[in-house]
Design a protein around this nucleic acid. Structure first.
Lengths: 211, 211
DNA sequence: CTTGACTTTGAATCACCAGTCAACTCGATC
DNA sequence: GATCGAGTTGACTGGTGATTCAAAGTCAAG
């Protein structure tokens, strides 16, 4: 039946995308071979190309697939919190590589850098990247807007503008932390993001804060 | 004579590094072949490996060589200016991809991303990267310190801390601009950097500013 | 049990590219 | 003008890895 076939097909499809994303984080995009992905799935290399037109297409799909996955997990996580400030703090915590025990976040940032490099020369991925990056800034701006609607935050600079600034700051710091920079550790990044966020949005920072 | 050989040798060495850096910006690190570098120099592929132990070593050297070059050019440029604020504004302008007609800046950022990706798996480059990134933050912090020494800026948050925040912000925004993001253009980035810098250091922003 | 569409395999193909090497060039030296 | 050796060439080697493909396997439906 079509249903069964489709279902199997879909599982495999997804299974391969997940395997590809993991291999990319492990070995780096440039060093990722079809063989590696096949091994991770426990199938033969030929099958990978049965499900994906080419290695390149698969890699690009895997990058955006993984990014989607992380984004959705983050959105789900944030939705549990009522206070805009709690949401913002949680968003920061989720963005600091290696802060939370869940080290999928490390993966996520490594994938982001791969996306950026590749998007420089791959128009298809370039388009995807813009959507992905916009969504990321947007999620910050939305928190700010929400906080203002409920009166938790005062009015001030345009929320989208704050999203860009804070988003860029987080990007830049996350890179340093991901690289294991000795001057920028996870807690340090967390604190700096909180400070800048407070200053941008315009509220006081309590001495000892945590989400 | 040893002198002639050395001189020729040194020219070639540098010539190859420069060619390699250009090829990397053009084609991307992953797509760079020895053949490409040789062609750019107008020599045969064999010669590249006569001067460099291996392709990998050459690529890593080329990345740091280019970064050094840009850093030194920037330092030279800034030294001409007396006012700390002018220096800061100039540093920002120099950091915005595509703001100044001199589009070497585009190259520079593309190379940075390549460095980051590769540093994730190459311990030698990882060490280099830390030095390079630190120097970059330092050059911001130094301007802040200088401005405070002369009384141009008020005392305030630790200068190194400001360097990290502003440096990270610039990194993050530069990525977006480099990617040709439709929401973050060069002038927009410039303005946002100035705003955050003014807020971090604590001075008022004149309506229409420029270096 | 048979059919046929879908899935899977793994060997074969094909292109590409880093790195090697033997030979050649040519200016400097004696 | 013979010799030396750094610099240079480009053909060659060896390995790798994407992609193809014919054959084999699976399984639901008739």
């Amino acid at each position: 039946m079509a249903r069964v076939r489709q279902k199997n097909g879909k599982d495999r499809h997804q299974e391969i995308l997940e395997a590809a994303a993991r291999v990319i984080t492990d070995r780096g995009l440039a060093e990722t071979r079809i063989q590696d992905i096949a091994e991770r799935c426990g199938v033969s290399p030929g099958l990978i190309l049965y499900y994906f037109e080419s290695k390149d297409r698969l890699l690009v799909e895997a990058l955006t697939y993984a990014n989607d996955k992380y984004y959705l997990a983050q959105a789900r996580d944030l939705r549990r919190l009522d206070s805009a400030r709690d949401q913002l703090w949680r968003l920061i915590d989720l963005s600091v590589p290696g802060l939370l025990p869940d080290f999928e976040r490390l993966e996520e940032w490594a994938l982001w850098i791969e996306i950026w490099v590749r998007a420089l020369r791959d128009p298809a991925l370039a388009k995807e990247r813009e959507v992905l990056d916009r969504r990321w800034r947007q999620s910050i701006a939305d928190i700010v807007r929400q906080g203002r609607t409920t009166g938790e935050f005062d009015e001030g600079e345009d929320a989208d503008e704050i999203g860009m600034k804070l988003g860029a700051l987080i990007d830049g710091l996350a890179i340093q932390v991901l690289m294991n920079d000795t001057q920028v550790g996870p807690e340090h990044m967390q604190r700096m993001c909180q400070e800048v966020a407070a200053s941008l949005i315009g509220f006081e920072l309590a001495p000892a804060t945590s989400a």
